[in-house]
Amino acid sequence: MSTPGPSSFRPIFLLPLVVFAAVAVYFLFGLQLDSRKLPSALIGLPTPAFALPPLAGAPPAPGVSGTIPGLAAEDFKGQVSLVNVFASWCGPCLVEHPFFMRLAETTPIPIVAINYKDKPENAAAWLRRFGNPYRRIGADEDGRVGIDWGVYGVPETFVVDGQGTIRFKHVGPVTEAAMRDDILPCIENLRNGRDCS
């Protein structure tokens, strides 16, 4: 009988362990990802060609007198804008709404909106009740423009640069942290001619 001595050990025996460790580390990082947050296929691409009618009965926004116009692809030319996809039936939209109100009242950043699959009278009432931070609102009643924008859950927020290129997308309600760490720095960078992040 021979007992295998230390000399019979070969480095290859460690291979399964090494492979397992590598896979485990990879999966550990994968677990930290939020599977609900999908990278937008549209980042770096021009906004889809679209023209949405105005939202009937929309109340005026800070700094905008008169009626709120609709939204079309040409409206992004010339300045960095924040595009918010919202609906009156969307609960989380109410969570992020104060951030947009504060932004509209304290900064010159143009905030525009796509009112996604909503009844115009409901959306107008919602804005009258909670305030309207949007300089332009496109009424997307059948949700087709939303699909062109790759919208899969409201609220969604996009940063579009002055050339009409989509530079950033946030899915879900905008939080204080997202506003401070991602959205505002992105807008600031784009305004200074730099990249979004």
């Binding site: 999908l38 990278p39 937008s40 296929a41 549209l42 699909i147 924008w149 790759g150 899969y152």
Partner: peptide, 8 residues
């Protein structure tokens, strides 16, 4: 579909 929503 992939133009709008990616390969996902």
């Amino acid at each position: 579909m992939t133009v709008r929503y990616g390969d996902f």
